[in-house]
């Protein structure tokens, strides 16, 4: 590679100078090696959940008037998913074949979002024996409709008679 510099004057003198590219290529090679060695090839994704909905150090706020509605509850059980705010108003989506009816659950969460557009809290309850991926799926559906404050709970399987 050469650098051409326009020269003035009567005598024509060759002003082309050769740049030494070897150190430059060395530097680039070192940079490439370092960056490839430290590259992050797999970017991990995550679903954040804050289990403490309020700071325990702050004094409790006075109860609002009128009292807020009970939070939306998504109860993942072995035989289906129950969605609702009150026991008598919730809907149960039974297992279809060997998989949960996530389409029905999504529709129910969407209708709850329309009824309570400002609510952010959701409680996700999972019975013992339910796989982790089903809890994540339920959490994912609630995040889709912007229920950003999630509380995870669970315990022994709930009796099916408690839901309809």
């Amino acid at each position: 590679m050469g650098v051409s510099v326009e020269g003035g004057g009567g005598r024509r003198k060759n002003l082309n100078a050769n740049l030494n590219l070897v150190p430059f290529i060395d530097l680039l090679s070192v940079c490439i090696t370092f960056l490839i060695a430290t590259a992050v090839w797999v970017e991990l994704s995550s679903l954040p959940v804050d289990q403490a909905l309020s700071d325990p150090n702050t004094p409790p706020a006075p109860p609002p008037d009128p009292p807020p509605p009970p939070p939306l509850t998504v109860h993942v059980r072995a035989d289906g998913v129950w969605v609702g705010r009150k026991v008598e108003e919730g809907r149960n989506f039974a297992v279809v074949g060997e998989s949960y009816d996530w389409g029905g659950v999504e529709t129910e969460i969407e209708s709850d979002r329309r009824a309570y557009p400002d609510e952010e809290q959701v409680v996700i309850v999972t019975d013992d024996g339910v796989e982790y991926q089903h809890m994540i799926h339920a959490l994912d559906l609630t995040r889709k409709f912007e229920y950003t404050k999630s509380l995870l709970g669970g315990g022994p399987p709930a009796p099916s008679t408690a839901v309809r």
Binding site: S46, P48, D50, A52, E131, Y132, Q133, M135, G154
Partner: peptide
């Protein structure tokens, strides 16, 4: 993904007990 969530919940309970409340799954 196929782990019983009960086990994960026990780990979460331990974390909350120790003061770790911000979880990222």
């Amino acid at each position: 993904e196929e782990t019983d969530f009960k086990l994960v919940r026990r780990a979460i309970f331990s974390a909350n007990e120790a003061g770790w409340t911000h979880l990222q799954f």
